[in-house]
Amino acid sequence: MKIGYIRVSTVKQATQGTSLETQEEALKAAGCERLYIDRGKSGASVDRPELTRMRSSLREGDEVVVSKLDRFGRNLRDTLALIDEFTQAGVGFSSLAEGIKTDNSPTGKLMLNVFASFAEFERDRIAERTAEGIEKAKQAGKKFGRPEADHTEQIQKLSEIEFKYPRMTVSEKAKQLDVSVATYHRIRRAREALALTP
């Protein structure tokens, strides 16, 4: 039996885009009788429940078909490990876009390694370009992450509490400020930073 596997990276792609439809059409045209679809999952994600379900349902003589190799996985080692698992179980693997069809011939194995390598290379290049973009934005003054909270009023209140009750414990001070102990420590660090500012 031919079994199709589909992965769409985002929920939006899965419900509104053409990516899901395109993959479904290609796999049905290739003769797939059953489809497994992981929605909102990246190729690098280990949490792909439909892939897990598909793997447990495979029987000797089945063939797993994907529309493109990067829909199956973007990590070379994991992709090859899965295909090796299929091979050991007597299950075939095909990727339509690249024309890959695993068998025991040297040509089939060579093609698989080459195309999986290119898929991983492209993923690494995307990550590299993203990191370069973030670095340029930082150099231009753009800030990333959660914005710093304004603790001005809490700093003033903390100073008053510490002046009036010098022996009060940290948890008691946090309770007086109506914050968690972790936030209390952030307020103290913010006060120290202000004290060091010229």
Rank of each mutant, 00 (worst) to 15 (best):
Met1Leu: 06
Lys2Ala: 07
Ile3Gln: 09
Tyr5Leu: 05
Ile6Gln: 06
Arg7Pro: 11
Ser9His: 08
Lys12Val: 09
Gln13Trp: 09
Ala14Leu: 00
Ala14Tyr: 02
Thr15Gly: 01
Thr15Trp: 00
Thr18Phe: 09
Ser19Asn: 09
Leu20Phe: 12
Gln23Arg: 10
Gln23Gly: 10
Glu25Leu: 15
Ala29Phe: 06
Ala30Val: 10
Gly31Ser: 05
Cys32Ala: 12
Glu33Lys: 15
Glu33Phe: 09
Arg34Tyr: 08
Arg34Thr: 09
Arg34Cys: 06
Leu35Cys: 12
Leu35Ile: 15
Tyr36Thr: 12
Lys41His: 14
Val46His: 12
Asp47Phe: 13
Arg53Trp: 11
Met54Cys: 02
Arg55Ser: 13
Ser56Ala: 15
Ser56Gln: 14
Leu58Ser: 08
Asp62Gly: 00
Val64Glu: 05
Arg71Asn: 05
Phe72Ser: 03
Asn75Leu: 02
Arg77Gln: 07
Leu80Gly: 07
Ile83Val: 15
Gly90Ser: 07
Gly92Val: 02
Ser94Leu: 11
Ser95Lys: 12
Ile100Asp: 02
Ser105Thr: 15
Ser105Leu: 03
Asn113Leu: 12
Arg125His: 12
Arg125Leu: 15
Ala127Ile: 02
Gln139Thr: 09
Gly141Thr: 07
Lys143Thr: 11
Phe144Met: 04
Glu153Asn: 10
Glu153Ala: 07
Gln156Glu: 11
Ser159Gln: 15
Glu160Ser: 06
Lys164Glu: 14
Tyr165Thr: 11
Tyr165Gln: 13
Arg167Ile: 10
Val170Phe: 03
Glu172Gly: 03
Ala174Gln: 07
Lys175Thr: 05
Leu177Glu: 05
Val179Trp: 01
Val181Trp: 08
Ala182Asp: 10
Ala182Tyr: 08
His185Cys: 05
Ile187Phe: 11
Leu194Ile: 06
Ala195Val: 07
Thr197Met: 10
Pro198Arg: 04
Pro198Lys: 04
